[in-house]
Amino acid sequence: MLKLLKEIFRTGEATVKYPFAPMPVCKDFRGKPEHKAEDCIACAACTVACPANAIGMETDTAAGSRTWSIDYGRCVFCGRCEESCPTSAIRLSDDFELAVGSKADLTRKAVFTLADCACCGKPFAPAKEVDYVARLLSQSARSAEEADRLRLTASTCPACKRAQDVHHIADMGIARQMTQELETTP
């Protein structure tokens, strides 16, 4: 009996103090994905990566907005969003206390504005993404003119780019034909 009591005192208390004291979590614990909307460029990489479709994007061209949303109720805490985020805007925090009484409290949303195409004037991509890409491209540009050109390319919608390419190729074709004819005519 004495031996047993001694053993009990030696072992001490195994039970954790939670919820009366904060619960320590291990390093790199995968808790609630924390989204910093200020750093987000609404590129939708996390939307594609999310295996449970917890993260979604909805584009409303009439209102010129794109809404990012996450449903913590559907999240499986895999960290693929964090892996794919180019600006480190989303990161899994060590917060695990997610229980809620109403399902609406499990969602987070962020509304971003869409930028208009420099050519046709229709909204085509989030303004923050266009701005980010333009700055990134002009950072690695060799000259000021190249930077301007790259910035214009970044703020043109794919349809306009394609149309311009077609025009450009057609012009090139005509020019080539003319030079060939000039060369062949005596």
């Binding site: 619960m23 913590y72 695990f96 229980a99 409290d105 949303k109 923050k128």
Partner: peptide
């Protein structure tokens, strides 16, 4: 949910603790 999250959930269910999450919308 981790065991700690389970205990937190039960505490919320029994009305002992308040829920921490709130629906939020960030507008650019």
């Amino acid at each position: 949910p981790t065991p700690a999250a389970t205990i937190h959930g039960f505490a919320v269910a029994l009305g002992l603790l308040e829920q921490k999450l709130k629906a939020e919308t960030h507008v650019e």
